[in-house]
């Protein structure tokens, strides 16, 4: 299994190279000239400024040359400098990635817990009222747009009831914790700052719930379907014939088996949310990858766009690997890395 993981890890940079190449070409074939955003529209009529800027950002060189230079820099961890923030893209990403990860992990916890619970309940009470309620909840989760549900929960829980704070990662009267992991909930704990921890956690509740709701929808449907499939298997009847009770059947025998197909959905959702949490991040003023990607795209910020693309691609590759490993850990029939014998 270790050899298999090693092989997958070695293959990863090659796959990423493909992602980088496509992202590089696509961003350079956009019709808009990135210089517009670098020097401003008015200066575009000034040939001297344009020439200087072209030379300064290396845009005067040929495309293959730019590509090779970019790759060479990438090997040293240099993702280039953002046109917009004038900061190294790597640094921008390092600040924003933990914010997104913190939000997405929290959302995945919410989505998994509620999704699995609702799925199990729905399967247990198939076609009865709890099933229909769960279906309704799931349907809303996957079809109500986040920009709407986000605003609604902010209005209800923050503005009207005042139970939870408004947008942001930490209370407005608090300072951000010293950077250790970039996860505010962890960094405040490391610093022993209890008030900060409570604030960071409270800030996390609404965006994580809104984002987690979308995950709850897919996960609960998936769990329900595979639970129904598993509950019809003979080993469930065999477990009942042994004298096992309903809860034991549901959780010990059925859920484990039903989680196998669900793992794929969970992995996919996680990878997708790394770059897909844009709307949530925007509404909750969450300084993550998603909102960074949006401003990069709007500002024709090529280095930032490619940087975000690499992060997104890597998220998918790593999550797929983790999903495969999880499969091998849960299902004894999966022999990871074993060559199929024909």
């Amino acid at each position: 299994m270790l050899a298999y993981i090693a092989r997958r890890l070695i293959a990863m940079p090659l796959l990423l190279l493909g992602v980088i190449t496509v992202a590089f070409l696509l961003s350079h074939f956009t019709s808009a000239d990135p210089l517009t955003s670098i020097i401003g529209e008015r200066q575009m009529n000034n040939p001297a400024v344009v020439e200087a800027a072209r030379a300064r950002w290396g845009l005067d060189r040929s495309l293959p040359e730019q590509y090779l230079v970019y790759l060479k820099n990438l090997l040293t961890g240099d993702f280039g400098t953002s046109f917009r923030t004038r900061q190294p893209v790597a640094q921008d990403l390092l600040v924003r990635l933990p914010a997104t990860l913190e939000l997405v992990i929290a959302a995945m916890i919410v989505g998994t817990v509620f999704g699995v619970a609702l799925g199990v309940i729905a399967a247990r009470f198939q076609n009865r009222t709890p099933d229909n309620l769960a279906r309704l909840f799931a349907l809303f989760g996957s079809s109500v747009p986040v920009f709407w549900s986000g605003l609604v929960v902010l209005f209800i829980f923050s503005v009207q009831l005042g139970w939870l704070p408004g947008p942001g990662r930490i209370g407005s009267r608090m300072s951000a914790p010293e950077l250790v992991t970039g996860f505010y909930t962890i960094d405040t704990l490391v610093a022993g700052d209890w008030a900060g921890f409570r604030s960071a956690l409270a800030q996390l509740v609404l965006p994580a719930s809104v984002l987690g709701w979308t995950v709850t929808g897919i996960v609960s449907r998936m769990v329900r379907a595979s639970m129904l499939d598993v509950l019809g298997q003979e080993y469930i009847l065999a477990a009942r014939a042994k004298g096992a009770g309903q809860l034991r059947i549901l959780f010990h025998h059925a859920l484990r088996n039903a989680m196998l197909p669900t793992l794929t959905i969970l992995g996919f959702s996680f990878a997708y949310l790394i770059t897909g949490a844009i709307l949530t991040e925007t509404i909750f003023s969450w300084p993550g990858i998603g909102s960074y990607a949006v401003s990069a795209a709007r500002g024709l910020d090529h280095p930032a766009i490619i940087g975000v693309t690499i992060v997104g691609g890597a998220a998918f590759l790593i999550t797929n690997l983790l999903t495969d490993i999880a499969y091998a850990l849960v299902d004894p029939r999966v022999k990871i890395g074993a060559r199929a014998t024909a």
Partner: peptide, 12 residues
């Protein structure tokens, strides 16, 4: 049970 292939839980 009739079919021992399906009467045992594959994950235990």
């Amino acid at each position: 049970f009739q079919d021992p292939m399906t009467a045992l839980n594959p994950l235990l």
